[in-house]
Amino acid sequence: MADTTHTSENTVARPRKSIKWGTVFDHTVLILGSLFMLVPILMVLQTVTTPDLETIKNGPGLTIGTELDDNFAKAMFQASGFSGENTGTSMLINSLILGVGFAVGKIVIGMMAAYAIVYFRLRFATFAFWLIFTTLLLPLEVRILPSYEIVQQLGMLNTYSGLIIPLVASATATFFFRQFFRSVPNELVEAARIDGAGPVKFFIDILVPLSQTMIAAMFIIMFVYGWNQYLWPTMITTDEDMYTLVRGIKQITQDLEGTNVPEYGRANMLALIAILPPVLIVIFFQSWFVKGLTESDK
């Protein structure tokens, strides 16, 4: 981005005039902003390659060490905790299951709810929609105790379904899909009716493929949201083999308080691994994401 602005600036201002202070200011802001975002990550990267002892002696430095593979192996394969079951790999898998289950569940339920609200002559459809919408005012934190109690009574503690299902209903997804469906031309529905497509066929054959970009956009948002869940997994999972990454990182630093040298490299490695999947998903789905939220190809 900065690159393109730069070249176009050059061609415009070819005959050298005085310095454009406005441009300098813009770039200063941009550079400071990117440093603000990048430096912590660079610090993490540096720590990950440095032996823990050096990190604790000198603090974050500028030299790149040789411990990268060691720390990676430790983070991924060495268990922390008592049971020896929460290795980085198992936590990564748990997080992925949570993120994907979260995203897929929210999309499926949101789409079906929106489909019902938009396309069927339901009594009180609008009322039902606003009722769903008001649940945005009741986030998990507000209802966490009753939610926990229900999950516990259903015997879903320490299960994936216990992690995912109580959070899977989504007003946000319902809202976005509702807006999207309302923009689908009515003739399409009528053409499908004449073509003999029933409600289920219309949904699967036409509406779902049309919603591709919207689904992709929702997937990103919901996956990252699910991936970053901290409070709920902390409450629901007590077995170490059910730990997610986000929660497991804390476990490591916590474990090693006392006289031991804190495992900076390993913890930071895990942090790095934890931010990687959301980043990859955003990069991969980026163009669809923008399309889904801005334009519609109908």
């Binding site: 031309p185 003739e187 399409l188 053409a191 009716r193 591709q212």
Partner: peptide, 19 residues
């Protein structure tokens, strides 16, 4: 039902399935 009326309809904005 429209599908069983043995009719076919052409719409103003074509109503083709875009995908």
């Amino acid at each position: 039902d429209p599908a069983d009326r043995d009719i076919a309809m052409v719409f103003q904005n074509y109503a083709l399935y875009p995908h």
